[in-house]
């Protein structure tokens, strides 16, 4: 039995008595549909009852989330609650971790991402990713941007694509004279924008950002945030952040993840979505007490 909201009264099974999940257990029944304030029309990604396992430990339990198109969705929550794990489901990056697997359904434009047989390589071209630490390739600035396009068989004018991507990432003016210098010679903030440019060059539909500003200073952070605001006209952005102000400043929708109390009792760290609402509502009038406790700094 799964309790989606502690406000719901469960007379038979109190949440702290439900046993920890095992991979062999059958999936728990879908929770009854709750009146969700966050109705998302035409979501680009839609997950239902998504569970993620690392070996025998459950990292995410029964996640329901709809990622709105051409909006910024923020994932917030305390450390270890599965924000990055959820993000990495969207482009099957968890495949790189031995023993990781998904259950439930997660649909991206009609593709079932939980199906192990889908082409993750083709998916990742359409769902790009920017990482926590800027990780440009040890190649020239030009090669950094061109690399992804080249391996994906881009047929157009490469110089044009590189310039367009760097302009879009608000980096062109700073690097135009030194395209053949190493990407590692740039400052941290420039490197992160180079990584964004590299992602834009393969023309994805979604950009996943895993704490993209946590290694940057406030000025570089502001630049990346401005950039996100511009990019959402053409792209759907999902951002994991530890910085609640950042989530509030930048995002349209916010999902607050929490550790599942029942799992914690059993010695496991399993994340659940405590609340998924429009950002303004989540921060001003949270409907879940755990969210409220987290955003006011009482937990986390």
């Amino acid at each position: 039995m799964t309790t989606r909201s502690p406000l719901r009264i469960e007379p038979t099974t109190p949440p702290d008595e439900s046993p920890p999940m095992r991979p062999s257990d059958p999936l728990p029944a879908l929770p009854p549909p709750k009146p969700d304030p966050a109705t998302v029309p035409d979501p680009v990604i839609s997950a239902r009852s998504l569970c993620v396992w690392y070996g025998s430990s459950m990292a995410l339990k029964n996640v329901d989330i709809d990622i709105p198109r051409h909006k910024i969705t923020a994932l917030i929550g305390p450390s270890g609650c599965g924000k990055s794990t959820l993000l990495r489901c969207f482009n099957r990056m968890n495949d790189l971790i031995p023993g990781a697997r998904m259950e439930g359904t997660i649909k991206f434009e009609g593709i079932e991402l939980a199906d192990p047989s889908i082409d993750a390589v083709a998916l990742r071209r359409r769902v790009g990713m920017v990482f926590q630490k800027p990780n440009p390739f040890p190649k020239s600035i030009y090669q950094n941007v061109a690399w992804g396009a080249r391996i994906n068989g881009y047929k157009g004018d490469m110089d044009e694509l590189v310039e367009k991507s760097l302009r879009r990432a608000a980096l062109w003016e700073e690097v135009r004279g030194k395209l053949h210098k190493s990407g590692l010679d740039l400052s941290g903030g420039q490197q992160q924008r180079l990584c964004i440019a590299r992602t834009l060059a393969v023309e994805p539909e979604i950009i996943l950002m895993d704490e993209p500003c946590s290694a940057l200073d406030p000025i570089a952070t502001a630049k990346v945030e401005d950039l996100m605001d511009e990019l959402k006209e053409d792209y759907t952005i999902v951002i994991v952040t530890h910085n609640m102000q950042q989530a509030r400043r930048t995002s349209d929708m916010t999902a607050c993840l929490m550790l599942d109390e029942a799992a914690v009792q059993g010695g496991h760290r399993t994340g659940v979505i405590a609340e998924f609402s429009p950002t303004e509502k989540l921060f001003t009038n949270p409907s879940d007490p755990r969210t409220e406790a987290y955003i006011t700094g009482r937990i986390g």
Partner: peptide, 21 residues
């Protein structure tokens, strides 16, 4: 570093491309 491999995979590279390039 793993971060370089992840960056390449994130752009839609195959294992062979990540390994050799």
């Amino acid at each position: 570093p793993r971060s370089l491999r992840e960056a390449a995979y994130g752009l839609g590279a195959t294992k062979f491309e990540v390994s050799t390039r």
